[in-house]
């Protein structure tokens, strides 16, 4: 127990800050993933075949390739790409580094974006056609229709699915430990190696993840209940 205490002797404070890091990466990745997801869903529902093809390619690849590979790929290839772009268009020279946080958040955002794409697409399709026709009939413009009818309803339908995407993103952050970002998993591995007590620290990690997933299940449940206020209940 002393191993998990606060302060210089124990690893409690390190694990606490690592938990905050996990939350920060997961949040950044999830929000960015929502942006990718919205773009992906829009592309999948588009009239243009090539847009649909790109979006299909994106989701197929992300769902077919192990997350660990995607993270490695970003890790090794991400900086090279950014360096290339920066040298070409920003006039910089030499290497441009991206920190482990950005790399991790970006990799998980791309992964969770693929799942968000399907969730958002499903939610938009779930909106009854009649409501959209009715809105058109009363003369709403496309923007107004999106703001008043499409977006609020799609969000409601998407909430349960997005809750799952969030949980996935949260658990995937464990894999970014391979890039050296000190989140829960990496901190536990460091502590386990240094104290030779792997069970203690991996069990502590498991508990921390359970706390995070439990709290977020509760939060999403609350949000769902709230979004369903106006709905008829069977």
């Amino acid at each position: 127990m002393e191993l998990l205490s606060w302060g210089d002797k124990g690893w409690g404070d390190e694990l606490f800050f690592a938990t905050l890091m996990t939350l920060a990466v997961a949040t950044a990745a999830f929000l960015l993933g929502l942006v990718f997801g919205s773009l992906g869903a829009a592309a999948k529902l588009s009239r243009h075949g090539w847009l649909r093809a790109i979006a299909d390619g994106y989701t197929t690849i992300m769902r077919g390739v192990p997350d660990l590979l995607v993270i490695y790929l970003f890790y090794f290839g991400g900086s090279a790409l950014v360096t290339y772009v920066a040298n070409k268009w920003l006039g910089t020279s030499g290497f441009v580094g991206i920190n482990a946080f950005t790399i991790g958040a970006l990799a998980i955002a791309i992964l969770s974006g693929a799942y968000s794409t399907e969730v958002i697409r499903g939610a938009v399709l779930a909106i009854p056609k009649g409501e959209i026709e009715a809105a058109r009939a009363v003369g709403m413009s496309r923007l107004l229709l999106f703001r008043r009818i499409l977006a609020p309803q799609a969000l409601r339908y998407a909430l349960p699915g997005l809750g799952n995407v969030w949980q996935l993103a949260l658990k995937e952050t464990a894999l970014i430990s391979v890039t050296g970002l000190v989140e829960i998993m990496r901190q536990s591995t460091i502590a386990a190696g240094s104290t030779k007590k792997p069970f203690t620290f991996y069990a502590a990690a498991a508990v921390l993840y359970l706390v995070l997933t439990t709290l977020s299940t509760y939060a999403f449940q609350r949000a769902e209940d709230r979004s369903m206020r106006g709905m008829r209940r069977a």
Partner: peptide, 23 residues
């Protein structure tokens, strides 16, 4: 079900592989 769905697979693997060997 709750524990295994609420934690990353990597943690489960490390707990089983390195963790159990501690005892």
């Amino acid at each position: 079900v709750y524990v295994f769905r609420g934690t990353p697979l990597l943690v489960q693997m490390f707990l089983i592989y390195y963790g159990l060997g501690q005892f």
